[in-house]
Design a protein around this nucleic acid. Sequence first.
DNA 1: TATGAATGAGTGTTCATTCAT
DNA 2: GATGAATGAACACTCATTCAT
Lengths: 226, 226, 226, 226
Amino acid sequence: MVSNPGVKGERAAPQRARKDEDKEARRRLLLDEALALYAATSYAEVKMADVAERAGLAKGTVFLYFPTKEALFLALLEDLLFSWFARLDARLCQSDAPWTGPWLARSVAQSLEAETSLTRLLAMLQTVLEQNVSVEQARRFKERLLQAMLHIGALLEARLDFLKPGEGPRVLVHLHALVTGLRQMADVAPVAREVLASPHMAPLRIDFTAELTAALTTLLRGLESR
Amino acid sequence: MVSNPGVKGERAAPQRARKDEDKEARRRLLLDEALALYAATSYAEVKMADVAERAGLAKGTVFLYFPTKEALFLALLEDLLFSWFARLDARLCQSDAPWTGPWLARSVAQSLEAETSLTRLLAMLQTVLEQNVSVEQARRFKERLLQAMLHIGALLEARLDFLKPGEGPRVLVHLHALVTGLRQMADVAPVAREVLASPHMAPLRIDFTAELTAALTTLLRGLESR
Amino acid sequence: MVSNPGVKGERAAPQRARKDEDKEARRRLLLDEALALYAATSYAEVKMADVAERAGLAKGTVFLYFPTKEALFLALLEDLLFSWFARLDARLCQSDAPWTGPWLARSVAQSLEAETSLTRLLAMLQTVLEQNVSVEQARRFKERLLQAMLHIGALLEARLDFLKPGEGPRVLVHLHALVTGLRQMADVAPVAREVLASPHMAPLRIDFTAELTAALTTLLRGLESR
Amino acid sequence: MVSNPGVKGERAAPQRARKDEDKEARRRLLLDEALALYAATSYAEVKMADVAERAGLAKGTVFLYFPTKEALFLALLEDLLFSWFARLDARLCQSDAPWTGPWLARSVAQSLEAETSLTRLLAMLQTVLEQNVSVEQARRFKERLLQAMLHIGALLEARLDFLKPGEGPRVLVHLHALVTGLRQMADVAPVAREVLASPHMAPLRIDFTAELTAALTTLLRGLESR
DNA sequence: TATGAATGAGTGTTCATTCAT
DNA sequence: GATGAATGAACACTCATTCAT
């Protein structure tokens, strides 16, 4: 853990990030630590002080990189979301065969299976994250989101011939809604878990991936069948 | 402190709710005031003290009726949700004609149009409300939810002949997800509103009712077209 | 638990205490339940509501018998203290043989061994109990205490020939101090218990009865040796 | 908020305690203010907010120095107790003449005469202070207490030739008990004060120093006379 | 850039006690 | 006498954020 031999501090990070690459590295470090904490607990339970400590930095330093807690987590969401978009893009474009709805639905749902943090954060986007963030950051996020949606939307329209112009992005909007909605339904509180354990409660137990696949498949079939 | 009824008292309710009906009335009063505050602001901004004050009661009195803030709001959600279920049920059953997917989608979406508080609360169900609530209350809620889902689900299966056995409740699960997801997407933070005002941001501006109608219609068509 | 067959209530107590003996019985019942709760927990943890419930009475009823929580517990202390005085008196007077200091010390300490509640309450007498009590109750308590002290004090002076006039009560004052002081030292908080578990901490671990016996024996020998 | 030193600031301490000595000074300041409030009222009446205000600090700042109210007061007790121990030690060692019981008793009792806060806090040690304190703080306190007891105990054994090995600390335990017990008996509640004003109540009126001297003298004589 | 001491707004909940019935 | 609904004062502690150094 000690990377500065001879120095008293136990800090892993460099003392001062002068170069842009150092700053970027430190930024990533903070995001990584925030993610680790968030994945293990919840937004409310993640303290800025803990993020700082885990990153080997002082509390105040975090605020040099992210002006608010919401800004930090919006940046984290941005990272996760657009990296997922990129991976989805790559995954989809690998396939030369013509796309089918069920295949697409499965692909999307599977690509989200391990992205619990992403989908959890997505569900807090408007309610929490965008509540205490600069217009600039919000704009940047929305612009990138728009761009990605238009890009993937165009891709969908190109490869799913039953999609009419403009329907690609719309599918993504509905996907977004399904993802955040199902994520919340699937993340059950301890009390509820106990209640849902009864066999007859089965209809209320939500399997995120299964339901997302099913709903998305049906949705696409609905578009195809017109 | 008000001993001269009619002089300063603004409440019709008796000073002390001794009979069960009085207690029920007071309970409703508290729920109503909580709803009014919530509709105007947000969960976090509603203070138990304000609810009490608006109801003309002392702070401690609220806790005679609801053991925690979460319990109060879960009870509120319960009220709104099951009264909506009942209204939807009535609305649907009025129609003698055979149901169609688009008609159903429109009916459901329209019936939810004015239910902003309901859908906002629904989105907090697992994340917030069920976090600090007795197992009993949670169980009661889930049981009623299950019952309603099975009931409406059966209705769907009976009137939409393309639905296979067991698909009624599943449609409702997907509806639930869409509702909470779209609600969150539609409730835009002030900063975001500013950003979304740009014309080119149109694809990111969500009209709750329109999108819910569209998505649900498509979903049902997808089921019909098999 | 139901002693009034046919009545809906589960109350063990009579509906109304009209006769003085009924009232006295109810009073004792309340004291007994308060004692049971106190012995198992602590003063702060005993709720008036719990006392009422255990006694099968309504919350408000307790206050018909004891105007304040402190009054209830002072009454309880009174009961325990003077019943102990009586028992001590009896025990001491049984012995025909001339008294000795060590024998007396042992007798007293042993008679207090099982009286944890009494000694715990005694330690709260001035700090807590007498803080919220009527002058009448306080006077009554002090008068009885004085009387008992004078009585037992006189007994001591009569049977321990080394005691000079007026020293009997004084011995009792010192006894009182030792009892409350040692009781507090012996009642160790959980954190402290952990700390005191270390072998080298032995000198700080207090055995109430042993220390009381030792101190009292020494004290009496000190008086005898003049 | 005070940025013009000398204008409104009543404090000599720097705005920010950066050096260890500044921090220690601030810590002492808080302890002093807490002591002032406690001496004038009671533990329950001292509010952390008041301590902060008197120290010219924000509420939260107090918790940077003491994690809980109990921790603050245990630290205060620690200060008072060990400073008293030191003063007692000095006082006792000044005397070259061989010690006698009566002299020692008088010395101890007199040295405690002005230490009302110390003895009052001592009586709350196990009941209150150690209830909400870290194991570390508790251990530290007990270790110091043990050390002091062994030290003073050894001193006693060395200078009072009638003490057998191991009896020094035990005398201190009995002293501790007498001190806390007598302190509680001497601190009379307002109601009780009224009652005790009657001439015939004289035997119940406790003079802390007088009784402590008497009891301790007798106790030591008891040890001497074997 | 980095630090970390200081800030201070923010609140749900308990429970002894009262009093209308 | 009994009830139990209503009262309302009371309060330590957290943590995102700032800013002097």
